[in-house]
């Protein structure tokens, strides 16, 4: 039967669909038969090196959501001090100890988007990017990020557009 978790997720989906969020291009379950696995597509913020990029995230929702936070990771490669380039793992407090049921999948996605322009180089998952920031090489950092955005996050947009 539709349990409490599904009910809350359906309400979240409805809220997202009611008022489209231009920064969150997509937010929906991936498969038709599983409401506990979702996909989100984030739009990179303008005037940042992420501008023009679209990133897909995979969201796994635990059975006792929203007591436990959702597991979120990037599927599209992204260069960011707090995101693993290899696995897409995200280091963000609200997805761990600072989680509360007041967060939703949508607001958590928006927090991740905010993290992109506000990196925290002291807890890095991507040391190359973090080191550039830590030694104050902002030009180098931005050009590295922009390169990966063009390499991975813009071609995907074309694919999506033609599909």
């Amino acid at each position: 039967m539709v349990n409490a978790v599904s009910r809350r997720l359906l309400k979240e989906l409805k809220d997202y669909q009611k008022e489209r969020n231009p920064d969150l291009i997509e937010l929906s379950p991936i498969q038709e038969d599983n409401i506990l696995v979702w996909k989100a597509v984030l739009r990179g913020e303008a005037e940042t090196p992420y501008e023009g990029g679209h990133w897909t995230l995979r969201i796994e929702i635990p059975k006792n959501y929203p007591i436990q936070p959702p597991k979120m990771k990037f599927l599209t490669k992204i260069c960011h001090p707090n995101i693993s380039f290899k696995t897409g793992e995200i280091c963000l407090d609200i997805l761990k100890a600072a989680w509360s049921p007041a967060w939703t999948l949508q607001s958590a996605c928006m927090a991740i988007r905010l993290l992109l322009s506000n990196p925290e180089p002291t807890s890095p998952l991507n040391c190359d990017a973090a080191n550039l920031l830590r030694c104050g090489d902002f030009m180098g950092y931005e050009s590295l990020v922009r390169m990966y955005t063009q390499l991975y996050a813009m071609s995907q947009t074309d694919n999506e557009g033609s599909a």
Partner: peptide, 13 residues
Amino acid sequence: MKYTIIQIILMDA
């Protein structure tokens, strides 16, 4: 692809 609320539940069972 967009999902309606109903489609999702329906595919549940």
